[in-house]
């Protein structure tokens, strides 16, 4: 290993000592890679001054919006959509004689948490929390299967497609509002997917109370799959929406 290689190794591991620096000072190539001590002197100019004035003007006219306010409103909207659609379609599954009621309550509570707390977590500043929310995604299909009664009752394609459409259509308004809020933060695929899954959970919550088909294939293909599809679809949709602010 040459001195240049050793210098490069040390540079790439934040481990430069006096020996490495001494080598760099005598090597015409390595000296160009040495970290800049103390940085540059801040500059000024008409462009910076104009930007300063424009930013001050924006500061004057734009009140600070705490992120929790928007997140809270989205959570309330999603909960309202979930409860309203569930009430409109009816609680047939809950009333069905073969229903696993305890499991339905657990799954319903988890989905409602995903609809409300999930949207808040998805919009939280920073990158960690939305990613942690995505780790919960595999639990959802499992929970659907465990709360299902195992009986296949949706015998026609039309009734099966009804479940799929319920998940997709119930997610439209929450997802549109969520995407509008995402415009105000940096493009971040995991965050967008987390918000998409939270929005699509409104439809899952509705079906949990309404759909009497508790067979595994139906739950996976016509409940879980469209839910996952909405989460993934949110990413390309977010990419076409212009960003107004790049904060994480």
């Amino acid at each position: 290993m040459s001195d240049c290689d050793r210098f490069l190794e040390a540079l790439s591991s934040d481990d430069l000592d006096a020996g490495h620096r001494a080598h760099a000072r005598t090597c015409p190539v390595c000296r160009l890679l040495l970290p800049v001590e103390g940085g540059e002197t801040p500059t000024s100019g008409p462009a910076l001054e104009a930007l300063h004035l424009r930013a001050l003007e924006t500061l004057r006219t734009t009140p600070a919006r705490p992120w929790t306010r928007d997140a809270g409103r989205l959570a309330l909207l999603q909960a309202a959509v979930a409860l309203a659609v569930a009430t409109a379609l009816g609680f047939s599954n809950w009333a069905w004689p073969g229903a696993h009621r305890a499991a339905l309550v657990v799954a319903g509570a988890f989905l409602l948490a995903l609809v409300t707390v999930g949207s808040v977590v998805a919009l939280a500043p920073g990158r960690r929390r939305p990613r942690m929310l995505l780790l919960l995604a595999p639990i959802v299909p499992l929970l659907l299967l465990l709360s299902g009664n195992g009986v296949h009752t949706a015998n026609t394609l039309r009734s099966e497609m009804g479940c799929l459409l319920t998940v997709l259509l119930t997610a439209v308004v929450p997802l549109a509002v969520g995407l509008a809020l995402l415009r105000g933060m940096a493009l971040d695929a995991p965050r967008t997917a987390a918000l998409g899954l939270s929005a699509a959970s409104t439809g899952l919550f509705v079906l949990e109370w309404h759909c009497t088909d508790g067979s595994g294939p139906h739950l996976l293909c016509f409940h879980a799959l469209p839910w996952l599809a909405v989460g993934l679809l949110a990413i390309p949709l977010r990419r076409v929406v212009p960003t107004t602010s790049h904060v994480p």
Binding site: A55, T58, L59, T62, A64, R65, G184, T244, S245, P248
Partner: peptide
């Protein structure tokens, strides 16, 4: 961006 989204 930081001025508009300082609430974050």
């Amino acid at each position: 961006s930081i001025v508009r989204a300082r609430g974050r």
